[in-house]
Simulated assay, not measured.
Amino acid sequence: MGDAIVASRKPFYKELKAGRSYLWCACGRSKRQPFCDGRSHEGTGIEPIRYDCTVDGEEVLFCGCKQTATGPFCDGAHSNIPGGYAEEAERAEDLPWAESDAEGIRSLDGHCYVIAAEATRPATAGDWWCRTIVSTAMGAQHQAQFYGELRRGRSPVLASPAGDVVLWTMAGQGNVEISGRSFPLARDMGVYVRGGEAFRFTQQGDAPLGVHIHACPATDALDELATMPDDFDARWPDRTVGVDENQRHAMGPRYFQMLVDKRIGSTTATQFIGHIPQSRAEMHRHLYEEALIILSGEGVIWNEGVRARVRAGDVIFFPRKHRHSLQCTHPDGMDVVGLIHPGDNPGINY
């Protein structure tokens, strides 16, 4: 019996064909990575894993380190093997800096951008104010995000016209009503609203209630309803998740905690909170679309041809398969909250 060996520090990106079967090398010895060559595993006791593709053009990441718990696919385990997490080598410092426009948006390569959530709040805004952060009109395909601020009273009754909603409480306290069911709401809390349900906020205390509202799949606007429906999905009674250090997952020198995910009913969108030490990640891509909220610290987001400074209160939007690197420059590190869709593991990259 042999042990699996690391064939590649990163997973292998492949586009598959419907009706075909693929034999993934689990031992790491094949000369046809990531696939089995039919003989290298002999005597190891490690058999290849077969995957039957049913969707033409399916995009997958076959594990290269052979340490995955979800074979044949990557689960992010490569970040925790020796040498598996690498920092970006020093890059040329002559890349231009993205400049902010009147909307507080710094555009990078493609549809990637940084946006200051509160940049356009008018002095004459009422008790409820909401602006678009991510939308189909801004280049997103799989998620939208809105930033809402409630100074007193109650917000309008809101709903996504397309599907699920995931909330993050940025500041203040109060409660959120989801289709007739009320939940306490405090800073640093994730909330899940199922597709077809509506929600509204009530502010309490002295500070305004600030909430990031993610809608999945993407849309250009939230619906405002005249009344609150009474159709809460009681099959999933737990809808709020707080920060819990005991739930952290290591990802090299970084760590993250899952917040909204399959445990409370969200099957395609995943919310997480993470910490990034002072470092610069190597350039990488994801198969999911991601919106990242900077909670504390500061740093630089690098693209291939441009870079932008980021700090607490900023949101970074990453399209699928967009090559990027996030650098934390603060000695105390950087805390972030991310929403990925479609996806269930923020540790997977290639």
Rank of each mutant, 00 (worst) to 15 (best):
D3Q: 10
I5P: 04
R9H: 14
K10N: 14
E15T: 15
L16F: 03
L16I: 12
G19D: 05
R20G: 10
S21I: 01
C25K: 04
A26I: 03
G28F: 03
Q33Y: 02
D37L: 05
T44V: 02
E47P: 00
R50P: 08
E59C: 13
L61R: 05
K66N: 14
K66R: 15
K66Y: 08
A69Y: 03
T70K: 02
D75P: 12
S79H: 15
G83L: 12
A86R: 11
E87N: 02
E87H: 01
E88N: 08
E88P: 05
D94S: 08
E99P: 00
E99D: 09
S100R: 13
G104T: 13
I105A: 08
R106W: 09
D109Q: 06
C112H: 00
C112F: 01
Y113D: 05
V114C: 07
P122W: 01
C130Q: 15
I133A: 05
G139K: 05
A140P: 09
Q143V: 04
F146R: 12
G148M: 07
R151T: 10
R152V: 05
G153H: 11
S155H: 07
S160V: 07
P161Q: 10
A162V: 14
G163V: 08
V166G: 11
L167S: 04
G180D: 02
S182F: 01
L185H: 00
A186R: 15
D188H: 12
G195D: 13
G196T: 11
R200E: 05
R200G: 08
F201S: 02
Q203D: 04
P208L: 09
L209K: 12
G210V: 00
H212I: 14
H214S: 13
A215L: 08
C216F: 05
P217Y: 09
A221C: 07
D223W: 06
A226H: 12
R235F: 04
V241C: 10
D244S: 13
E245L: 14
H249M: 08
G252C: 05
G252W: 01
F256H: 07
F256Y: 15
Q257T: 13
D261W: 06
T267Q: 14
T268A: 10
A269D: 06
A269F: 03
T270D: 06
F272W: 15
Q278C: 12
E282G: 02
M283N: 05
M283R: 09
R285P: 04
I293E: 09
G299I: 07
N303D: 13
N303S: 15
E304S: 06
R307H: 01
G313Q: 03
V315Y: 10
F318G: 07
K321H: 10
R323D: 11
Q327D: 03
Q327N: 06
T329M: 06
D332R: 00
M334K: 03
V336G: 01
V337C: 14
P342Q: 08
